[in-house]
Amino acid sequence: MPRIRPATVDDCPAIAEIYRHYVENSVATFDVESLAVDEWARKLEHIVAVGQPFLVVENLEDDALPTGVLGYAYLGTYRGKDGWKHTAEDSIYLRPEAAGRGLGKWLLQALLDATDRGVTRNVMAVISDEVPGSIALHRTVGFVEVGRTPAVGFKFDRWIGVVYMHYAIAE
Rank of each mutant, 00 (worst) to 15 (best):
I92L: 15
G51S: 12
R101T: 04
V32F: 01
F156Y: 04
F30L: 09
W159M: 14
D157Y: 08
P66D: 08
L35P: 02
V131N: 15
E58F: 00
V23R: 00
G102H: 02
K81Y: 04
D157F: 08
K43M: 14
C12R: 11
A28T: 15
F143C: 05
D116E: 12
D31Q: 09
L107P: 09
G161P: 12
A98Y: 10
T140H: 02
M165E: 03
A136D: 11
I169F: 03
L44Q: 02
V131F: 11
K85H: 13
T120R: 02
D157R: 04
F54S: 00
T77K: 09
V146A: 02
T67D: 00
A114L: 03
A16T: 13
V126K: 14
T29I: 01
R5Q: 14
K105P: 07
H86N: 15
I18G: 00
P6V: 13
T120C: 07
F156N: 11
G102P: 07
V37W: 10
N59F: 06
D63A: 05
R3F: 05
H86K: 14
I4K: 15
A125N: 12
G133C: 08
L111Y: 04
V27R: 04
K155H: 13
S91V: 01
L60M: 07
E61N: 13
E24P: 00
E39C: 00
W159V: 09
S128L: 11
E39W: 06
V57T: 03
L111H: 04
L103A: 08
H166D: 02
M1T: 11
S128Y: 04
D116Q: 13
P13L: 07
R117G: 11
A110P: 03
N25V: 10
G100P: 14
H86I: 14
D82C: 07
Y78A: 03
C12T: 13
W40D: 04
R20D: 07
M124G: 04
R139W: 10
G118D: 15
T149F: 08
A125V: 10
V152K: 08
V126P: 00
P96T: 06
L44D: 06
S128I: 06
N59G: 03
R101H: 12
D38F: 10
R95W: 02
V57A: 00
A28W: 03
A88R: 07
D62E: 13
F143Q: 03
R148T: 09
V9M: 06
A49Q: 14
A170R: 14
Y22N: 07
C12I: 12
S91F: 06
C12Q: 10
D11R: 05
H21I: 07
I92P: 02
Y72T: 14
R5S: 08
D90P: 00
L35I: 05
E45Y: 10
K81S: 04
P96I: 09
M1N: 09
P2E: 06
W40Y: 11
P96Q: 06
R158T: 13
N122Y: 13
T120M: 02
